[in-house]
Design a protein around this nucleic acid. Sequence first.
DNA 1: ATGAAAGCGCTAACAG
DNA 2: CTGTTAGCGCTTTCAT
Lengths: 332, 332
Amino acid sequence: MRDIAERVGVSIKSVSRVLNGESGVSAATTRCILDVADELGFRRNDLARGLRQRDRTGSVGVVLQRFSTWFFDNLLRGVDEVAERRDCLVITAGSRDADRERNTLLALSSRRVDGLIIEPLADDHAFLRPEQAGGMPLVFVDRPPQGIAADTVLADDAGGAHAATAALIARGHRRIAVLGAAANLHTVAERVRGYRAAHRAARLPVDNTLLVLGQDGSDSAGQELVRLLGGPAPPSAVFALNSVCAIGAARALRELGLQHRIALVGFDDFALADLLDPPITVVAHEVNEMGRVAAERLFAQIDGLAAAPRTIVMPTALLERGSGEIPGPGLR
Amino acid sequence: MRDIAERVGVSIKSVSRVLNGESGVSAATTRCILDVADELGFRRNDLARGLRQRDRTGSVGVVLQRFSTWFFDNLLRGVDEVAERRDCLVITAGSRDADRERNTLLALSSRRVDGLIIEPLADDHAFLRPEQAGGMPLVFVDRPPQGIAADTVLADDAGGAHAATAALIARGHRRIAVLGAAANLHTVAERVRGYRAAHRAARLPVDNTLLVLGQDGSDSAGQELVRLLGGPAPPSAVFALNSVCAIGAARALRELGLQHRIALVGFDDFALADLLDPPITVVAHEVNEMGRVAAERLFAQIDGLAAAPRTIVMPTALLERGSGEIPGPGLR
DNA sequence: ATGAAAGCGCTAACAG
DNA sequence: CTGTTAGCGCTTTCAT
C-alpha cells in the first residue's frame, strides 16, 4: 500500500480506504489509486489486516477425518452454502489420526480462522479449551466431543440403528451380524445400543459373537464377514455401522456369491449405493442439512449470538433399496 | 506473549525464544515460561508471526473443483504425504465455478499460504500473474492453465483415450459414443483427440453426432446416452471422458437393462467401479503419485530450487474389468 | 543468557 | 475529503 500511496502521492490511509471500499475519497483519487494498484498487481496482505482487526480473518475451518466420502462432500456443501452468503472462505483440512487432528486444529486456530467445525477423532478435546476460552467458536459434528462443552450436531444414531435392526428382524432375521469401527466411538456405541434395543423390543437375544467392531477399513470388515459366514452359526443378515464397512460387506458378499441371500443394511448413505447389485439399503440422514445447521450455529457464535452450547440431533430415515429386504430364515 | 513475560518477569523476547525452541535461555527460565504459557493457555498468533517472517505461514493451499471424488482424495493423500514430512499444513478449498475459483485463490494468496496447487477451472489464469510475480509458488494439476506459465502435472489424456478407444475398436465396436464435459476443457479436448486418433489409426470414420460434450452432471450425461441409444443409429459402446459421465452412463444402461449389451469405458477410476455389474473398465493413472509430484514441485519452488516451469505427464493404464470388454457388432 | 527498540503491512481513532 | 498517530503480536537486530 505504501508503494501505491507514494506513487499516487496520497497518504497510505486513502489507499486503504479505497481498497476496502470505504467512502470518503474523491472519485478521481479513487480511480487513480485503483489504476496504480492494478498496475502494481497489488494484493492486500490479509495477515496484517487480520492482525489489526481483532483477528478476524473471514475464514472458517472444517476439520474432517477424511474427505472424499459422500458424507463429507455433502456436509461441506451445506457449510459452504451458509458461508457463501457471508463471503466467508471455508478451508478444510484432514485429520487422519488423533495426533494430526490436534496439530491441524491448533494450527488453524493459530492462523486465526474465525471458527472451527470439527469431526472429533481424538478421545479428548480438552486441549481446545484455551481456544474456546479465547473466543474461538467451535462446532462439533457427527460425534460429541469429550472434555469440552460446545455446540454439537449429530445424527440420531440409536434411532436409526433401531429402525434398521427392527426392519431386519421383521423380515425374519434372527442372527444379524454387526460390522463397525472402534467401540469407543460415540457413533458406534450408539448404533450398537439401537441394535440391542431393537432386539430387546422384539424379545430376541443378542449373540455377542456376531458383533465385530474395531474395523477401520473395507477390506478388514469384509474379511471378518467372510469369517462369520464360514463359522458354525452364520448370520443371515449384516448391519454395517458405517459406509466403509457396508462397502466391505457388499464386496465380500459379492465374492462369495451371497449378495442375494444375505441381507445387508448400512448406516450412512454413500455414492453408488443405489447402483450396486442389489442396491444397498441404508440408514440415511440429511447430511447437507447437518452441514448447514453446523455452519449456522458457528456463525451465531461468531456473531456473539450464541447461548449455551446445544446438541442438535438430525433425524434418520431407512432407505429401502433391496439389499436390506432379503428375507431371513424366519420367512423363507 | 507479553502476559507471559510480565507474569514471569522476563522480557518478551525470552518468551519468544522459549516458545520457538531457540537456544539461549536458562533451563530454569525456560521451565517457568513453559509453565505459565500452559497455565494461560497461550497460543502463538501465527498471523503476527507470518507478518514478521517474510510471510511464511507453513501452509500450502490446494484448490479443487470438488472434493469427494476418488480422484481428489487420492491427490490430496499424495500431497499430504509430502507436506507432512515438512510439517506443513495442507488446507484445501473448493472452487465450484470459475468465479469462486478466482475468489478462493486470491483469498488464500492474501492469507499468504506458502504455495498453491490448483486444478484450474477458469479459462484464463492470468489473474494469478501478480501472485506469481510476487513469489507465490504455483503448481497446476490435471489441466494446464491458460495465460500463465507454471509447473503443471497432467495425465496422458490423449494416450489414455487412444488406448481405450483402440480397445473398443478391437472388440468390434464401430459406433462409439463419447460423453464428456465442456469441449473447451483441455482434458476433454485431449481425450477427444485420442479418440479420433484411434479411429484414424484403424482407418475408421468418426460420426460426430456420437460426441456429446458439455455434460457436467451424471444425470444429464445419462439422459444424453438414452437419447443416443433410442436414435436411428445407436452406438454399441460408450467412452465416458470422466467418472461423472461414466457413472451417469452406467446408471442409464442399467435402467435400460443394457448394461451387458453396450460396452462402457470411463476415463479416471472411481470408488466402487469394480463392484458394479458389470465392473467398469477405466483408464486410470496414479493419482496419488500425481499429488506427490505436484507437491514436490511446489516445495522445490518454495525452497527456491525450481528451474523453469515444467509440464509432467503421468502415464495411464487401461484397467479391464468387464464393462469395456463386451464385444461389438463386428464380433458378435 | 537476556533485553530494548524497530518494524512487518495494515487499520482504528482521531484530527484537520 | 484527507492525513497523522498509534499499535495489532510477533520476530529481527543489535546491544548488554
